[in-house]
Design a protein around this nucleic acid. Sequence first.
DNA 1: CTGTTAGCGCATTCAT
DNA 2: ATGAATGCGCTAACAG
Lengths: 333, 333
Amino acid sequence: MPSIAPTLSDVAKLAGVSEITVSRVVRNKGPISRATRSRVLAAIEALDYVPNRAAGSLASASAPLIGVLLPSLSNIVFPEVLRGIHVGLESTGYQPLIGVTDYDPLVEQHIVSSLLAWQPAALIMTGVDHTETTRKMLANHRVRVAELMDIDAEPIGIAVGLSHRKAGYDTGRHLIGRGYRRFGYVGHDWDADRRARLRYDGLCTALAEAGMTLVAERRNPGPSSTLAGKETLKALLQDEPGLDVVVFSNDDMAVGGYFHCLAAGIAVKDELGLFGFNGLSIGQDLPTPLSTVRSNRFLIGKTAVERLLDIAGTSDNRTIIDTGYEIVEGATA
Amino acid sequence: MPSIAPTLSDVAKLAGVSEITVSRVVRNKGPISRATRSRVLAAIEALDYVPNRAAGSLASASAPLIGVLLPSLSNIVFPEVLRGIHVGLESTGYQPLIGVTDYDPLVEQHIVSSLLAWQPAALIMTGVDHTETTRKMLANHRVRVAELMDIDAEPIGIAVGLSHRKAGYDTGRHLIGRGYRRFGYVGHDWDADRRARLRYDGLCTALAEAGMTLVAERRNPGPSSTLAGKETLKALLQDEPGLDVVVFSNDDMAVGGYFHCLAAGIAVKDELGLFGFNGLSIGQDLPTPLSTVRSNRFLIGKTAVERLLDIAGTSDNRTIIDTGYEIVEGATA
DNA sequence: CTGTTAGCGCATTCAT
DNA sequence: ATGAATGCGCTAACAG
């Protein structure tokens, strides 16, 4: 086998047709007779021909790539979204080109710029915080754009996710319905996590409607983690021992809270209710399954891809797709 | 702003130089006088020029891309490796193009083929199980290759990881040294996870050297998970109640085992020791930190990238890089 | 230090 | 249903 890769022209020669015919067979586009198609396919097989993507992209001014911008890979939530994207992309011929923004719109802007240099078919971004320059670039390139997770804002293209404000509100209603009255809140850094704040706002609205407020709250600077949840709950309970339920900014934090209760001998649910957000499997595998809200991360990624590929031709499709959420009763609240 | 992106030629005109000069400035390659460089940079700035990667890749027969093949995104370990890769790639101009093999060498083969179509600078693969066709493709394309995680085999290019056999062996020695005598093993599916099996082999070797064998063992079909660990430990203890320590195939499984002990009222360590593998943060955040082996996933990804970019020019660099591991004493064994 | 020439491999457009 | 001509935007290999 030659160390130089075969090209369209090699295949064409072997099959006794023109290059463009081979190209049509490869892309499955345009009318081709059954006879020539099979001759070409045989030649492709014989030579182990693989199309050169750079050449194809240059000629067509568009690449079978989907740019994916994630804020972080440390939080299990985003690999799960990525998994959904992957499954949605399966056998479409598109490949994901990924970038990590570290929750910084300026970093995001640079990544968008370098992703656009590949002329991707679409861009999948997380959240709704973008710089003006980013928005301008996206408009100029006429790339299809999906914004994931958050649907509480005006989208650039399509938005796929859930209303975090509503999820927070429903959390409040649910817990009030179960008889809880003295609410505490344990959270993490809001500056990077707009959605956690929306949930908090929704929760407070529900409490206010019922004539209550949070009895105590505490937010740990830095990202969410089991450790942060553990320590922050401990601190909160020192401030204010008389709570009957604590809502956490997400499951990571809540699992930490659960571990604190175990270590401190606090009877979860009877003595203190715990409530999370996301529905991570670690929470559901605890000896006492965590009460929480399932956020369907996988579905968000998968749905986004499917919609983006659907609207191939169309222009200006501002759409909001609500993938919803479900309250997971669990056994901690 | 025009909706058509500026090209090298536009920049060249504005700066009053030839295209190739602009190209040299952009790529920071070849000698350029300070004066022209700044004129060109000004023109680039003025036009918001972004190089077209497809064109560049076609002309140079190589793209600033690194293909990354991961077996799965469900297991937290691989996103962590990916994070290392990302950090290693930061500000190098390379971008990761990722594929997920689902632990299937044939799927891997297809992905390798479609990744190579982009002419990536290098390929990062996980593990050492590849089809003959895959090996042939890699040889023909003269791509730099790194195989991650596993260094107990002859590498294609560079291998970055740790000796899982040795880690298993040291686990055995460590636990024997702490006085444990009646060993149990709880594992998951081996067919997909060669490394788990190597650790098991190492463990058995250590036991044999001390004149012991596993008293009981049980492997759950399917991937590792907290749930699997929980249920499998339960089943194992029903078979054989007289164990004093159980080694798990990894931390996910071990955390599940820990949860079972909590629920069943088994005193961890005093009554039954638990030992994992990986050193995941969830294990360390338990009320009782898990005894385990830290496997440095982040470092593996980062190191692989750094080495791959190092050996840019060189050819045929078969190297094994041992990122090591550390026994984490913890409090469960 | 800078420029000229010549393609890279493919898809688009227009023929036939 | 198939083909010819042309160029996408950039870089390698040489000049000078």
